[in-house]
Structures are given as structure tokens and as C-alpha cells.
Design a protein around this nucleic acid. Sequence first.
DNA 1: CCGACTTTGTGCGCGTGTTCACAAAGGAAT
DNA 2: ATTCCTTTGTGAACACGCGCACAAAGTCGG
Lengths: 211, 211
Amino acid sequence: MARLPVYLRALHALAERGVATVSSEELASVAGVNSAKLRKDLSHLGSYGTRGVGYDVEYLIYQISRELGLTQDWAVAIVGVGNLGRALANYGGFASRGFRIAALLEADTSIVGSRIAGLAVEHIDKLEATVKQHGVSIGVIATPAAAAQQVCDRFVAAGVTSVLNFAPVVLTVPEGVDVRKVDLSIELQILAFHEQRKSGAEREWIQAVDA
Amino acid sequence: MARLPVYLRALHALAERGVATVSSEELASVAGVNSAKLRKDLSHLGSYGTRGVGYDVEYLIYQISRELGLTQDWAVAIVGVGNLGRALANYGGFASRGFRIAALLEADTSIVGSRIAGLAVEHIDKLEATVKQHGVSIGVIATPAAAAQQVCDRFVAAGVTSVLNFAPVVLTVPEGVDVRKVDLSIELQILAFHEQRKSGAEREWIQAVDA
DNA sequence: CCGACTTTGTGCGCGTGTTCACAAAGGAAT
DNA sequence: ATTCCTTTGTGAACACGCGCACAAAGTCGG
Ligand SMILES: NC(=O)c1ccc[n+]([C@@H]2O[C@H](COP(=O)([O-])OP(=O)(O)OC[C@H]3O[C@@H](n4cnc5c(N)ncnc54)[C@H](O)[C@@H]3O)[C@@H](O)[C@H]2O)c1
Ligand SMILES: NC(=O)c1ccc[n+]([C@@H]2O[C@H](COP(=O)([O-])OP(=O)(O)OC[C@H]3O[C@@H](n4cnc5c(N)ncnc54)[C@H](O)[C@@H]3O)[C@@H](O)[C@H]2O)c1
């Protein structure tokens, strides 16, 4: 069900183009998946399609949004206002999906107090208070790897049960807490791996032809 | 085999702590996976373990690095020097893994010519020339969604066969080209989904107790 | 009202990846 | 040398997700 956000984005794009209904085939092609898979996914949240016609775009947007919990607002706190933290704070694409950046937290006192994207950067000591005050339910970790586990523990202790981690470490959390990891180095390494296999296969192919 | 980079990172951490050998159990626990899975993964690249002892850390680092193609340098080009492109360019963690940022490309002429992380930002028109000149094999797309497919097509036309995409669109590429997508909004939406299910389950549980 | 056409929803077989469990292999100690 | 202990490498059961293919359901034109 990690594909629902992709469908949602595709549906939003269709809605903006004024499309009223869409078939599973069309939507699947835009979302880059098999049409049977898409239909099965959608059937898990109820029968919202009309046979012979397809799905009502607006209605489907509403149903998926509701399923994903996007009809409510989520308060997000970002810890670590460095290269990445700044980029995230300045990104406008979150607010439109119901994610409100409620706080920016830092350890470096020379950064604390400055304003980024209309928000005052607060000291990391205020983490617990900030989480309580804004009802933060999602914590984003954009600190160096060495500080990540410690920050994560404080998030968990403060009652945050969803964490998005950019630091290149495996976080240990108690049961009931969700962690998602975004690791750009790993993405590059996977690309490099396939890239190497491509050129390797080519070399072998040339050798085979030579022989 | 998307887990090899995780093992590699764990091994590097162990090596820095002076650990010479490691058992599959220990390494699996650090990497956050099942030990049988880890052993099967490692067995796919040969028998590098010693029964009764474990794996030699340094030797395993070398073997995995070789398998991933990290013994050679990869030239990376980043297109779109905005919030995200800047953060990526300034990040030092890539170079240490063999990824060299060879070029920064932009469409906005007010940004072209400025220096970011010691690199001069070049105009997007130079894409083909830059790819050729530096032997770029991995292209990173950090432009707005509307420009992503177009940039991707130019990368592919220039001979780039691996693309890392940060724009929230599904890219269409010919066979043989690898695309990996990093979509932060989707990560947040997945967390929100689980978060909602948690509180939903709690509500149902309270209702069940009340009844 | 009916028949032709379109599209959904799903049963089923298939392939992949995961985990358990254990035999074989090596090291250490006597 | 023999025995015991630890740990690897892997066979086999299992789970799961994917996609084909098709019947049921609904639309639309006549
Ligand atoms: N920038 C990138 O493109 C990029 C790419 C891949 C991974 N990452 C990872 O993302 C993380 C952040 O990267 P970055 O480039 O923004 O690093 P950065 O050094 O620019 O920023 C890190 C910030 O975290 C702050 N910090 C350190 N310890 C803290 C603590 N205990 N509590 C609160 N704040 C603390 C630092 O003061 C700094 O401002 C790193 O783990 C990095 O490995 C970044
Ligand atoms: N910043 C974030 O934290 C974040 C989070 C999630 C997703 N994203 C996605 O990443 C992408 C970049 O985000 P950003 O915040 O850096 O945006 P941004 O607007 O700050 O930067 C985009 C840059 O791309 C340049 N550009 C536009 N068209 C171009 C073209 N055809 N060729 C070359 N350059 C071009 C623009 O001039 C601009 O400098 C967007 O697609 C965004 O949706 C960003």
C-alpha cells in the first residue's frame, strides 16, 4: 500500500487537467504499474469503480486521501538545520499535502535563533516541549549519523511514533514506532552496482563474440 | 542485493572500532536483518567466511566494495541547483564512497556561473558536452517535476544509463536505463498512513473495552 | 428492451525472497 | 588425535506479492 501516494499524485495531475473519470489501464500507465495490481490495490479500500466506465477522479482522490490520513493535518519537526534540513524546511511541497512543519531544532547555538522559511530555529533542548506544544507526530532527523540515535530516542521518549531518518545509520526503536530511512548514498551505490553489471555484461558479450 | 550497501556501512563502522572478525549474527543485528538472510546474501558473492569464527571484516569490505563497483570512481552530474541540488552538492558523504560530483547544471541564468562547493554551475545547454567530457554515468535530477522528464530524456540521449530522480513524477525511460526515485512526500504519507492506523486501532480498542 | 462493448473485481498459478533448521566445517582445548 | 563448541552455508518449507485471464457488471447505441 506504499503505492497509494503515487496513485494520488497521478490523480491530482489528472484532476488539474480536467479529467473526470479514468480507467485502471490509463491510471496504471501514468503511475507506472500493472493495471491488475492497481485494481487490486483500489479494491482493498472498497469498490469505488464503475464497470464499463472507470473511476471517478475526484471521488477516488478523496477516498485515497482519507485512507492515507491526509484529510487531517500532521505536525512535523525537523532536527538538524544543515544542508539537508534547510532544503526540507524551504520546500513548499509538503504543506500542500497536509504536512505542516511545526518546528526546526538545532544543537549549534550559532544557528539557533535564525529564521528559515519563516520559522525560528529552536534549541534541541526544547524538543520535548515543542513536540507537546505543537502535537508533533512525525519527527525528521537530518543530523550527522553520530547524533541520530540519540535524537531518535528523545523523539520516542517525547511520544513521537513516526520517524523519517536521513542519517546513514540503522536506528533502533521500540515496537510500535515506525522508522523510514532515506539514504542517498545507498541509492547511488545501487545504481553503481547495476551500472557495473551492465558494462560487465557488455565485456563478456564482446569476449564471447571474439572467441 | 540492495542490502549490500547497508552491510558495507556496518562493516566500515566495525573496522573503525578495530574489530577484525565478525559473526553473521553480530553483523546482522547491526545491519537490522535476519542472520540467515545475511549469510545467504554473502554466500552469493562467494564463501568468504570461516566456520566457527565468522567473517574477516577488512576482506569482506573489499569483496562487497568490488561487487558494488565501488573500487572505481563514478562521475555524477546534478541538474537543478535549487534547495535540494545545493544540499547534495555540499554533502561530503558521496566522495568518500567513490562518487565524484563532476558537474552542476542549471537553467536559471542568474544561478549559472556561481560556485557551489568549489564547482562552477554550468548552463543546462552544456549537458551533453559535460556528460561526454567527464564520462558521467549517473545523472541526478533535482529540478521541479515539470522539467524532470525532459532533463531525463537529455541524459539518456547523452548516454547516461543510471538516473536518480528527486522530482515527484514517474519517469519513462527506454529499456536498459535504471531509474531510482527518492520521494520525500511519499515517505511522509506512508508514515502518516501508519500513524493513522495506530490511532485508529487505539480508538477501536477503547471502544471494545467500553462495550 | 436488447445486444455489443468496455472495464472492474478477483481466483489462481507462479516466481521470488524470507526464515527455519541442520549438517558440515573449522578452531580450540585437552 | 579426539572431542566439543561455534559458526557457516544451504536445503526445504513457507509466505507473499505479481500478473494473467476471465466472469460479472455496467454503459451505450439502436
Ligand atoms: N546533504 C545531503 O545531500 C545529504 C545526502 C545524504 C545523506 N545526508 C545525511 O543527512 C544528514 C544531514 O546532512 P547535512 O548535509 O544536512 O549535514 P550538516 O552537517 O550540514 O547538518 C547537520 C546539522 O545537524 C546539527 N546537529 C548536530 N548534532 C545535533 C544534535 N544532537 N541535535 C540537533 N542538531 C544537531 C548540526 O549543527 C548541523 O547543523 C547527515 O547524516 C548526512 O549523512 C545528507
Ligand atoms: N527541497 C526539498 O526538500 C524537496 C523535498 C521533496 C521533493 N523535492 C523535489 O526536488 C526537486 C527540487 O526541489 P527544490 O526544492 O530544490 O526546488 P527548487 O525550485 O529550489 O530548485 C529547482 C531548480 O531547478 C532549476 N531548473 C528548473 N528547470 C530546469 C531545467 N529544465 N534544467 C535545469 N534546471 C532547471 C531551477 O532553476 C531551480 O534552481 C523538486 O522536484 C521537488 O519537488 C524537494
